[in-house]
Amino acid sequence: MLVYALKRTFVAFLILIVVSGLTFSLSHLSTDPALTIGGENASDEDIEAIRILYGFDRPVYEQYFSWLGRALQGDFGESYHYKAPVVEMISGRIGTTMTLGVAAILFALIVSIPLGTVAAMRPNSLIDRFALLIAVLGQALPTFWFALMMIIVFGVWWRWLPISGNTTWAHFVMPTIALGYYATPALMRLTRAGMIEVLASDYIRTARAKGLSPTSILFKHALRNAIIPVVALAAVWFGFMLGGSIVIETIFNLKGIGWLSYDALLRSDLPVVQAIVLIFASFYVVLTLSADLLNAYLDPRISVR
């Protein structure tokens, strides 16, 4: 188990290096940060001076390694636009994004696991069809459209919920649903498929032959096995959600790092973009890693491999 975990951690680390290297070189090749820093009125000489000052004249890989070296020490530089340390800008906002992400994935799981389970227990019943309808709608409707609809109905018509900002928990309700709903169809369908397969398995027949209670058969024997793949998928979706929070945070004006990355991209504020990409990538990697470890814990056969 320990060897397995170490191996996975090492791979995770390599992935981070590759991801950050790629984004670094791509963004440095696609825009000229010196133009951004200099602003509209800078002369050619000013731009040249900025290039030398910031080291943009050096080869990209050299710039990358010096950036990486500082990043590893927790120094992500300063925002070109706000002239504030990137670390401070992010740490002030990450709480909002995490709150939103965690709430959204919990919302998705709380909706999709029971719905998928009930649908699996009665395939083709009314509830199964209802679940399917939700899944189809969830996949067909774009998130931003769904978010706007909620804003119109609950925020503007009925005035139940605030539509912008992040000062109270009520501000998080609509963003959570909008973001969580996005993951619900996939998680629900996987729960349903897994449950149908597990319920037809020989060990469920054994559990019934032992005269166990329906609760024990459903929760202890069936669900435990059916949610193993769901856990892995939920971790991946949590990663997507942190990424997807860019859209949601922008729509609801929740000032988390999703909102910040949108802002930074518009301004070509590369140090901020770099740092956020690295953070999202690390989330992603840590999530997949913990999903694998959780899987290994849930399914005793895994760690053997």
């Binding site: 027949r205 054994t206 005269g211």
Partner: peptide
């Protein structure tokens, strides 16, 4: 269910899959 497992028990054809892997 109150009879199964206690008064009547069954052994199945498929030992490889009849036990819960978890």
């Amino acid at each position: 269910a109150a009879l199964r497992g206690v008064k009547m028990a069954m052994i199945f054809q498929e030992p490889m899959t009849s036990l819960n892997p978890a």
